[in-house]
Design a protein around this nucleic acid. Structure first.
Length: 357
DNA sequence: AACACGGGGAG
DNA sequence: CTCCCAGTGTT
């Protein structure tokens, strides 16, 4: 990719000026603080700004500095992430900040080799923190930037391929100005998020329309090229609504895999080779529950981006306090279940379990 | 290189 | 409903 010197300079100036005038007022932009930058960038991975704002406010209020976060329990950190998705981000961020306090005296490192070794900080977040917080000339190529470049240079590379991100980074290296590299990176992402959008880009409001090869070719609508994701894998699960004394039994999920470490209604993979009634009876026997099992079950579905769950919800009212509880389990009021991860599922589940929402 | 890992918004 | 969005770690 070759860009003429004049055109390059104009693109830089137009973008920086546009960003200066049009940037959104966001909580993490109000102070210059590497910790704020890091937390917001982790939260913004795969997640829209509007979704992140309330989570960021709450997180920083609870953990104002790296020391507060480093001292926190895993449970407290994960609790503040409930509903945000991709929960390994919370685990990794916690580990990274502990490392910052233990090894770097509480200062997020400003060297690429050091910061990129921290948990959960890959090439994008490395570039974002180094450029935004430390004013270094390092690319931060996210999906927005790849979309903008695809159109700006009329590129047909498949942005779903890992190799394409490398190519985009090489282009970014050539384009980032010495002055305000952080603002320039944010300008590219802001443009992608608000003007150069995936569908119906608003080219008439674009500050670099006149330099855009894709726009000139009338191809902005078909760019970027991106192969479709595979359909979610199907799975069947049984979800247990175990009630006693007006409380609901919830269980902390395993520390790896889907919804790792999240509180949830006890859920088992369906054993396809036996009737589901038998599996439910087996579950009750294993836990020594003496229970009245409701005769009808409630069936519904939930689709994650990569998994499609068919859920059988079974309700059971225990007739006595069980002698022991299953591992990682506690009794809670039904209201607290709505704060858990995947609240939409629990909203449906609670209605079926006879609770009024 | 392929897969696992959530949840929200637009049309 | 259907489609789209997409960083990092693991295998």
């Amino acid at each position: 990719m070759e860009i003429g010197d004049n055109r390059l300079h104009d693109i830089q100036e137009m973008l920086l000026q546009w960003y200066l005038e049009n940037q959104r007022d966001l909580p993490w932009r109000r102070h210059s603080n590497a910790y704020y930058t890091l937390v917001s960038e982790i939260m913004l991975q795969q997640t829209k700004v509007a979704t992140v704002i309330p989570y960021f406010e709450r997180f920083i209020k609870r953990f104002p500095t790296v020391y507060d976060l480093a001292d926190a329990s895993d449970d407290d950190v994960v609790k503040l992430w409930e509903g945000l998705g991709y929960y390994s981000r919370a685990r990794n961020l916690h580990a990274a900040i502990k490392e910052v306090v233990a090894t770097y005296d509480g200062v997020i490192p400003n060297e690429k080799e050091k910061i990129s070794k921290l948990k959960g900080i890959g090439p994008y977040t490395t570039g974002a923190v180094l450029s935004i917080a430390y004013k270094q000339k390092v690319p931060a190529v996210d999906g927005n930037v790849m979309r903008v470049f695809s159109r700006l240079f009329d590129m047909e590379d498949d942005i779903a391929k890992p190799a394409t991100r490398k190519k985009m980074e090489a282009i970014a290296e050539q384009i980032i100005p010495d002055r305000s590299p952080g603002d320039f990176n944010q300008a590219l992402m802001e443009l992608g998020a608000t003007v150069c959008t995936p569908k119906s880009p608003e080219c008439l409001f674009c500050p670099i329309r006149n330099f855009c090869k894709g726009y000139q070719a009338g191809r902005e609508h078909i760019l970027p090229i991106k192969t479709k994701a595979k359909a979610p894998k199907k799975a069947s699960v049984i979800m247990f609504g175990v009630k006693w004394n007006n409380k609901l039994l919830v269980q902390k999920r395993p520390s790896s895999g889907l919804l790792a470490n999240m509180w949830a209604l006890p859920t088992e993979n369906r054993m396809e080779e036996m009737p589901y009634i038998s599996q439910i009876e087996e579950y009750c026997e294993m836990n020594q529950y003496s229970a009245k099992i409701s005769e009808d079950v409630y069936r519904f579905e939930h689709i994650f981006s990569h998994r499609h769950w068919k859920i059988i919800l079974i309700s059971m009212e225990l007739s006595e306090n069980p002698v022991y509880l299953p591992k990682r389990s506690i009794w809670v009021d039904e209201q607290s279940v709505l704060e858990f991860a995947f609240p939409k599922v629990y909203q449906k589940a609670l209605e079926q379990l006879g609770y009024r929402n």
